[in-house]
Design a protein around this nucleic acid. Structure first.
Ligand code: DGT
Ligand code: MG
Ligand code: ZN
Length: 664
DNA sequence: CAGTCGATTCAGGTAAC
DNA sequence: ATGACGTTACCTGAATCGACTG
């Protein structure tokens, strides 16, 4: 630049180019685009409201006065929660859950909040983190017995017992989870509350959050989509092809590498809702925007992504999940309230190690155990783990849940330790909580134990000072190595919540098979090929083999199709069949249980029939029979491809092409 | 009636919990 | 057969269909 300004003369050029620019730079004051403080929402009286709500429920369950363990735990938690300003978060979450339940949609527990008894006592989670215990539900008795921390992995595994005071059968609960996993030792962790809502209900509850805090104070967190490896490679390859360049493949890779990481689009966070307190404006924190491809969907997102504004304002994670949808539907069909299902049912437990309870042989379903279609337990990886570990208790399922999520947790890590007999299955690291508990047991300072746990669960490995401290306290080498390998790890609370739900679904699978498959396929209707599956065992088996033969060439679509087919195979082996789609009787999107051995698929289950088409048919058939294919197409506005699909499947019987009347 | 344009659907890719 | 974290939802671009236009 000095060169450019040479015409001013050396001295003046230096002043203009170097000195003055610096002066201008110095005049600009430093300021942060996003302030570095926290702005929690304030709701008058939420501290006392939370305290009272928790005490009330605790007393209702455990009696008044509360047992010492309960009171101590609750007080310790509430003091930490309230002094760190998180009471509002609990109160809001509680309101959301209440609203959803009132509207008939069960809420699934999720995340680290299950580590908080206050959360259990304010209905935010159904996970009870107290140590294993018995409690008598008799109002006039309320006998309770608590085991020590560490004695039982889960209270539901306790042997059945009658109340020594009144004789009533005791309830068993308590999953033995430390509170600090959620909030840390000094409240310095930024926790969020995660909740699983039914996918179809998620928009409603997002709107409700806005009602609670007022318009202009609630926004969906935005995300930033970038050009990642595959897209970058696609760009580079297309560029080379379109320009007829003859370059080595290394050059294509080099070009691709240059494109990766470039911001491409904005997106919506799966469930993150950011709350702006009433004494602030959004613009104090972040610009806002519509989603990239739709200004009319009613959603406004933050322009900055969650990560860059986290820690400053409150975030609720209101996620959509299929399990609440499934439970809702299966309760409607069977009339059985899922929360009443015993979590120690022997038959249900047995499907995690055998097919017997399903009434089929391993050969028939091509799988030695019965966990297909059970969320997070049905993939071939987890099935193999179940075969290797043969769980018989709830607590073991929880450990398996922990071990089966995250890279280098089981394979290349815990599994080797068990196989090489370095440690037993019960001693390997299966959840975050294991790490903190063990390090505390070994005598590490609490803060350090917590920090190590947080680093390991995020896959950050161990810093030298951590290893030094661990060595000082005689933490064995295998433990240090194991921590170093872990890339991600569940909190126990999350594993417990998910196992509870999976176990309930397993119960339905054993005892209400038709309802189970109907609900399962309803959530997978998009990947369900009714035309193929009505063909029965033979056509299912054939397609499964075809996909297997594809090997590594199988696309993502083939893989999802395979999962559905495996379940369909099992369903047929259990003597339940699918009948053809019926344009008058089939629902648009739901599978209908006709009787114990027959399921009627929805119209959407035909490949090529979209949701709109299916809904239109369902609506229009109320206005009378379709007299011809032409009539069907005109009245429902479906395309001729859809009509053909229906016709080929046999859903239109002998319906004529044109209206008969038009012939005259 | 060919060509254009908007709407709709689907698969692949990405982000996030 | 292998090796394998599982699940959900959004965004883009290509493919397809059907309506409109000149
Ligand atoms: N399988 C799997 N589940 C995940 C993953 N990330 C998050 N989850 C599930 C388990 C978490 O407990 C739950 C909520 O995620 P969060 O990001 O809120 O983390 P979590 O609640 O565990 O900890 P937190 O106290 O919020 O920092 O979602 C993942 O990479 N794989
Ligand atoms: Mg969380
Ligand atoms: Zn009693």
């Amino acid at each position: 630049m000095l060169e450019e300004f040479k015409y001013l003369g050396e001295e003046l050029a230096y002043e203009v180019v170097v000195e003055n620019t610096n002066k201008v730079a110095d005049m600009v004051e430093d300021f942060l685009p996003i302030p570095n403080e926290t702005f929690p929402p304030v709701i008058e009286g939420s501290d006392t409201e939370l305290r009272e709500m928790c005490y009330n429920k605790a007393k209702r369950i455990y009696g008044d006065p509360m047992p010492e363990v309960v009171k101590k735990r609750l007080d310790r938690e509430l003091n930490s929660i309230i002094s760190n300003g998180y009471a509002v978060m609990y109160i809001i979450a509680q309101k959301l859950v209440t609203k959803s339940l009132a509207d008939g949609y069960l809420v699934g527990s999720r995340g680290s909040v299950g580590s908080s008894l206050a959360a259990t006592m304010s209905d935010i989670t159904e996970v009870n983190p107290l140590p294993a215990h018995y409690i008598c539900e008799n109002e006039d008795c309320k006998y309770s017995y608590f085991y020590a921390v560490g004695e039982w992995g889960s209270g539901v595994d306790l042997p059945d017992k009658d109340c020594p005071k009144c004789g009533r059968k005791l309830k068993k609960d308590g999953h033995d989870i430390p509170f600090e996993v959620f909030l840390g030792f000094e409240g310095d962790k930024e926790p969020d509350i995660d909740l699983n809502f039914s996918g179809s209900y998620q928009p409603v509850i997002h709107k409700y959050t806005e009602e609670l805090f007022g318009e202009g104070h609630v926004y969906r967190a935005g995300t930033i989509g970038t050009v990642a490896d595959k897209t970058a490679y696609g760009y580079a390859k297309k560029y080379v092809e379109e320009n007829d360049l003859d370059v080595p493949s290394a050059e294509v890779l080099r070009l691709a590498k240059g494109c990766t990481g470039v911001k491409r689009t904005s997106g919506q966070h799966p469930g993150g809702v950011m709350v702006i307190p009433n004494y602030k404006e959004v613009y104090d924190i972040t610009p806002i925007q519509y989603p990239a491809n739709d200004v009319n969907c009613g959603v406004i997102t933050t322009h900055f992504d969650y990560h860059s504004i986290s820690g400053r304002i409150l975030k609720l994670d209101i996620l959509g999940h299929d399990v609440p949808t499934i439970i809702r539907m299966i309760e409607d069909i069977t009339g059985l309230d899922a929360t009443t299902i015993p979590l120690d049912d022997k038959e249900t437990m047995s499907i995690f190690t055998s097919t017997e309870a399903l009434g089929v042989t391993p050969e028939e379903i091509n799988c030695p155990i019965g966990s297909l279609a059970i969320p997070e337990f049905g993939t071939s990886f987890v099935r193999q783990m179940l075969l290797d570990t043969k769980p018989t208790t709830f607590a073991e399922l929880v450990r398996i849940s922990g071990l089966s999520h995250g890279t280098d947790v089981w394979l290349n890590n815990a599994q080797d330790l068990v196989v090489d007999k370095v440690v037993e299955f019960k001693d390997v690291i299966s959840t975050r909580d294991d790490i903190m508990n063990y390090l505390l047991f070994k005598g590490l300072p609490p803060k350090m134990a917590f920090t190590i746990m947080e680093n390991v669960r995020k896959g950050k490995g161990l810093k030298p000072e951590f290893i030094e401290e661990m060595n000082k306290h005689n933490v064995p080498q295998w433990y240090v190595d194991s921590c170093q390998k872990i890339k991600y790890m569940f909190p126990k609370a999350h594993a417990v919540a998910y196992v509870m739900m999976s176990f309930r679904l397993a119960y339905y699978k054993v005892h209400y098979p038709a309802a189970f498959y109907a609900t399962y396929f309803t959530t997978k209707a998009q990947d369900f090929d009714a035309d193929l599956i009505v063909g029965g065992l033979d056509s299912i088996k054939q397609k499964i083999n075809e996909i297997h033969e594809l090997g590594n060439d199988a696309t993502a679509k083939d893989k999802t199709m395979l999962t559905v087919l495996e379940v369909a195979l099992e369903m047929y082996a259990r003597k339940i069949k699918i009948i053809p789609v019926d344009i008058y009787k089939s629902d648009a999107t739901k599978f209908i249980v006709v009787d114990d051995s027959t399921i009627l698929p929805p119209m959407i289950a035909l490949q090529g029939v979209g949701e709109n088409a299916a809904i239109n048919i369902q609506k229009e058939r109320e206005n009378g029979e379709f007299i011809s294919k032409e009539d069907l197409r005109k009245r429902t506005k479906i395309s001729k491809t859809v009509v053909e699909t229906l016709s080929n499947h046999g859903s239109l019987n002998d319906m004529s092409e044109k209206n008969q009347l038009s012939l005259f």
